[in-house]
Design a protein around this nucleic acid. Structure first.
Lengths: 333, 333
DNA sequence: GTCAAAAATGGTAGCGCTGCCAAAACAAAT
DNA sequence: ATTTGTTTTGGCAGCGCTACCATTTTTGAC
């Protein structure tokens, strides 16, 4: 069953020997740092080429500090939000010769703690996490680690070090105000597991409070177990309408869910938004191309990743950056 | 502008000192390997706890070989296909104490080469790439590296080492046969940049050949520049129909594109599939919940990631695994 | 209590690189 | 030719850990 591969083992010392220069010179040439002659450079490069030398960053990192590794501990890869953040960060990191490492917590704080511990063993330059809600153990480890910490996609809370995102509470409130202004009064909510996705919880909290203080409190809600998905949205709306047939608008926990709700309306011939309005969150591309553009809040996810990465590579001082969001009126509400 | 953090610098030697045992004992206890007494274990763990020691895997890897790092060099994070593969792999890797590292090539082979080189510097256990089409330089480096290589999401080609995926050519052929069997004869294609996404190119190639050899060759095609997206699909179909109003079926390069096409039909009141049939590729979840389920080919992406990771962690011999695909009849074709 | 086998332990030489420093080579100015 | 300053160079000590080996302690059988 086992299969053996031999590792190529060309070392810097061998390159030095082959080029007829010292190890330090090779090291300086390869990192393009310090001073060396044109001739030395040529001889080194020739030897590198000829031997097929690949530097060993494990050794380099150990010798120098600074791993140039950035660790992402994210809740999920199914929710496109996180790949978007990774995408934004990835470009900036690559341009600055940093490497991205990631693990997926599946929205489980205990798992997050274990994964953060595992990540710290790689002595990353920075750790990026979603939101501010972490276990005591996670916080303690991060504080003790001495590496930079970036909490992304939220600004409602206390940051450990850096934070880049937008206010989920403000988004929930803005969504409620928009629906109220449009005259909707019998409003329902369809969401996914709120305990795990605390940011969705914050949106929903602010949304409900805003409705309540306007005198038109939330009429009904349907919470689907499990992660958000188009299918959950469709089923959730169906179930909610069984209990509350007279709703005139639905706030969904995000665009995936909202899209499912919209499809349910299309399939059942429910006129949108005249009979039922639909409002989402995230501003996914797909929502711009549906027969009626989805009413939603567009969040700068890629930009969040980019800025987070920039703050890390420039070693910026601790700060919280609120990138804001944009309410997209769309045509479904 | 600069901000200083001091790295925690508790080392294994300090733990040994604090616990009153030798370094080797600490190392053995922490790796739970070799033999040590219950008492030694307790003293070590107590010291680790008290000092807040976090092992340094950089040093550990350098000393031992085996980085337990698995490198993913993927074309994109926007196309959900790749996050899906990562998701499948990520679970298996975490369970086996491996760490995922990734970089994004943006479908550029030159960039892929540079990123593979950067990855190899981390001496990963394995490198995962999409497909078989790589530059000579990439192939050479990978062969010389001695690390395992897994090429995923395709089986039509020559594998370097391991490969896990499905046949894109077979998928293209199956799609064509399905449409022909349903009686469609005036068939068009809407796709995205084929030079970059070679797997989409293979599907389209086989699709076209199958149509041609049936006597009903492709009537028209629209190639959208840039990456696949719902919006491209919608615009692409619109443009194609301007030139060929009499098409009766469209094959899209993937489900994102197909979804855009479907939305176009919904928006313009084009009856699907009676006037125009729509067929995609990937079997995204969203396609199952549209008012009419999307006709498509469902690919085992998460499973591909899982199996790829399993083959790596078990150090399986070189092999090509064809996971197959499932044609989903749906209701749009 | 004796002895061999097994279990537990600690010392130390690297792993491949970078950082520091002193030495050598070269350049410029007298 | 000599001095001074600048650039280039190589040697070597670690970085923190694991692998290996030698040593010590424990165990079990007689």
């Amino acid at each position: 069953m086992d299969f053996d591969f031999k590792q190529s083992t060309v070392t810097l010392a061998e390159v030095a020997e082959a080029a007829g220069v010292g190890e330090s010179t090779v090291s300086r040439v390869l990192r393009n740092e310090g001073s060396f002659s044109r001739k030395a450079r040529e001889r080194v490069m020739e030897a590198v080429e000829r031997l097929g030398y690949v530097p060993n960053r494990i050794a380099g990192t150990l010798a120098s500090a600074g791993s140039r590794l950035v660790a992402f501990v994210i809740p999920s890869l199914s929710n496109i939000v996180f790949p978007d953040v990774l995408r934004g960060a990835s470009g900036v990191l690559e341009a600055n010769r940093h490497q991205a490492v990631f693990s997926v917590t599946d929205y489980d704080p205990e798992r997050e703690e274990a994964l953060v511990a595992a990540m710290l063993a790689w002595r990353p330059t920075a750790v990026m996490l979603a939101g501010f809600e972490h276990t005591e153990g996670t916080l303690k480890m991060l504080r003790a680690s001495g590496c930079r910490v970036v909490e992304v996609l939220d600004v409602d809370g206390t940051a450990l070090d850096l934070a880049v995102g937008f206010s989920n509470r403000a988004a929930g409130q803005a969504s409620a105000e928009f629906l109220l202004k449009r005259g909707y009064r019998r409003i329902g909510y369809v969401g996914h597991d709120l305990d795990r996705d605390t940011r969705a919880g914050k949106r929903f909290g602010a949304f409900g409070e805003t409705l309540a203080s306007s005198g038109s409190p939330l009429v009904g809600r349907e919470i689907c177990s499990g992660a958000s998905s188009v299918e959950s949205g469709r089923l959730g709306l169906e179930r909610l309408l069984e209990r509350h047939a007279d709703l005139d608008a639905i706030y969904f926990s995000n665009d995936d869910m909202a899209l499912g709700g919209y499809f349910h309306c299309l399939a059942r011939g429910i006129p949108v938004p005249s009979q039922l309005a639909i409002f989402g969150y995230n501003g996914l591309d797909v929502g711009r191309v549906t027969p009626q553009p989805l009413s939603t809040i567009r969040t700068p996810r890629v930009q969040t990743g980019q800025l987070a990465a920039e703050l890390v590579v420039t070693n910026a001082p601790p700060q919280v950056v609120d990138l804001g969001f944009e309410l997209v009126a769309g045509a479904t509400a």
